[in-house]
Amino acid sequence: MNVYYLQLLILIGINIIMASSLNLVIGYTGQLSLGHAAFMSLGAYTSALATLRLGLPFGAALLIGAVVAALFGIVIGLPTLQLKGDYLAIATLGFGEIVRIVFLNLDITGGAVGLRGIPKETDFLWVICLVLITGFALNRIIHSRVGRALLAIREDETAAESMGINSTYYKTLCFGVGAFFAGIGGGLFAHWFRYIHPNTFGFLNSIEYLCMVVLGGLGNMWGAVIGAGLLTIIPELLRQIADLRLLIYGIVLIIMMRVRPQGILGQSQGKSTHTLSRYYKQILGKIKNR
């Protein structure tokens, strides 16, 4: 296979892992996280250092990276998930920036020079297997008791709590699981490109994963896959007009939100008041048209 297409496929695979794990947090649990790239960087740096410095086998390094990311997810999630909506978004954004700045200044991570010379371990087989494992695991979680608890929290946290769902426990759990798979994505990324830099995992990268999830459709497994695929391929197609690439990206986001705010595969958010409010709007429309 052509190296270019192979790289594109691997990138799509990694982005699918990133987007679907973020989808669990945002789409299924309704917790807006803007720090997903930070968990990716934790996985990337930990696993890269494990193979580079400790000489561990790739599989073990990936697992360690994912576990470290998950631990950070839990430690960060436990206090910040008490916050709601925009406040949570900003707190996770702040956390992501702190991680980036710390990595920029540590010696062991190579600081602002970045970490180079990581062995090339990632190949197509690893990526496809891990995409399938991630998809399977997330699918099982969503269709279990835990998944229903997460959905209940998304729909109405107060009501879920009054039904006996420990929302702090489930939200932290979901944050940890999301961070775990983001850590795997980071490990794959590091061992494919063989070079990582803290700015590869900045605020804008978190935003990119968010865009994949929203574009594909919040709370839809295939939505995250489609969103990741599209937002990996579209910038490649626009490569000829490199200067205009991100300009168009911005316009696409605005138009997409105007035309189909629920994403390509998303259902419109099924809140109980929804049909009622639509009915109300119809009546208002009729009155106005008179």
Binding site: D86, A89, V214, Y249, L253, M257, Q262, Q269
Partner: peptide, 22 residues
């Protein structure tokens, strides 16, 4: 997007930011 979900407006804002920067 004033009547759309909050997240849609937030993404639109991010889109505007990326557009202006570039």
């Amino acid at each position: 997007l004033r009547r759309s979900p909050r997240l849609a407006a937030l993404i639109s804002a991010i889109g505007a930011s990326i557009f202006l920067q570039n």
